[in-house]
Amino acid sequence: MGGAWVVFGIFCFSYFHILVDAWRATCHNPYYGNCYGISHNCPPGCPRLCEVDCRLCKPYCACDRPGAVCQDPRFIGGDGIMFYFHGKKDKDFCLVTDSNIHINAHFIGKRSKKGRDFTWVQAIGLLFGSHQLHLGALQVAKWQEVTENMLIKLDGENILVPAGEGKTWRSPGAGLRIQRHAEANLVTVEVAGLFKILARVVPITPHESKVHGYDVTQEDCFAHLELNFKFYSLSSNVNGVLGQTYRPSYRSRVKMAAPMPIMGAAELFTCPHLFAIDCAVSNFNKKIDEEKGGEPLNVACGGGSGAKGMVCRR
């Protein structure tokens, strides 16, 4: 791949390697000889989930990159701006909707003492072509790192990815490729020319529960998904909680100075179930008139580390 950067969502970075051992990550790209094989401690902000930028030879938090959906849920938009979208527990919301792809998320959570729901993304439902892909976290009481807690279904049928890091499962008919990046709970899901998703299942740890006041008990560790999205062919009409942030005309409405900038207007993104396409902003299967601004986007960005700004070129 030479010295070129790779486009991830609308952000550029060199080859990365996904964390396989808790607390440390390593660059596995031999092109970067000065970094290859060197192990790094994960940053304090993500002590168990980090990646290495082999070009810079530095570890970074995957949840700090554009296209990320993590935590309670904390988004990094396609414009590089961080925001929260809490939604409601046991409800479904549209994350991305375009003519050829539609992604909904199912939220789980519990009521906080302040009156709002603590929420996390438990599952996503992807529609592309005539296919439906379900990617979710199983409900578990006590978390065990080596136990597979990810549920994957294609068109209603369970998918069993072979055990072992690097093992791959393919569906030629759907153009789908799923690859493991750890023994359990960490995969990439890809349809060439359409999307690539890095998905991991993680629990709410006792430390997180104490710090944030989640009051998580031993009956349910609220296993949930943390996600990084990369899109290859979004149009300028794309919408959804995350999707709208990729539009050229989009201007963030969140209060940048707030400690927790929150995206509102949940009613626009609510949908009745995980594979529903009738949210108020749905674009799925709608014909795009390129003369009216529906041409695919070709966007590249750089800089930033998931803070509140990024330089982009369209």
Rank of each mutant, 00 (worst) to 15 (best):
F75E: 05
E157H: 15
E295C: 11
K308F: 13
T147H: 09
V238Y: 06
R55G: 14
N41F: 05
G264P: 07
P66V: 04
I76R: 03
D117T: 03
V211P: 07
G9Y: 02
A265Y: 13
G303I: 05
G37N: 08
M263T: 01
S252F: 05
C50E: 04
H181N: 06
G37L: 07
F13P: 09
L95H: 07
C63K: 12
A265T: 12
F11D: 15
Y250L: 01
K167G: 00
W23H: 15
G213W: 02
E190R: 13
S209G: 00
G156P: 09
R314W: 15
F195L: 08
A266Q: 06
S39Y: 13
I81A: 01
V52I: 12
H106A: 11
C54W: 01
A62M: 13
R180H: 08
C61I: 03
A307G: 14
P272K: 07
C279W: 07
K286T: 06
V311F: 12
P44V: 14
D220I: 01
R200P: 10
G37Q: 02
R24C: 14
P47V: 11
V211W: 05
L135F: 06
L49R: 14
L56F: 11
C27H: 02
D117V: 05
I262R: 10
M263A: 12
P66I: 03
G166P: 01
C27Q: 00
S236Q: 11
K230N: 15
T147V: 12
F269Q: 08
D64W: 04
F85G: 09
G87P: 09
I18F: 09
F83N: 01
V187W: 09
G125W: 00
K308T: 14
P259G: 00
D92S: 10
R180N: 02
A257W: 13
H134E: 02
M263L: 15
L225H: 04
G78L: 05
W169Q: 07
L234N: 04
C35F: 03
A163E: 14
E183G: 15
G173S: 11
C279L: 01
P248E: 02
P296Q: 02
F231T: 10
A62P: 09
G304M: 01
G129N: 09
P296L: 00
K114V: 13
C46D: 09
D53Y: 06
D92L: 01
K292T: 08
A266L: 04
K287E: 12
L19I: 11
I18L: 13
L56H: 09
Y246D: 02
C312D: 03
V241M: 04
C279T: 10
V299C: 14
I108E: 08
C271M: 05
C312Y: 10
G37A: 02
A182V: 04
C301Y: 03
G156A: 01
I124A: 04
A192L: 13
Q139K: 15
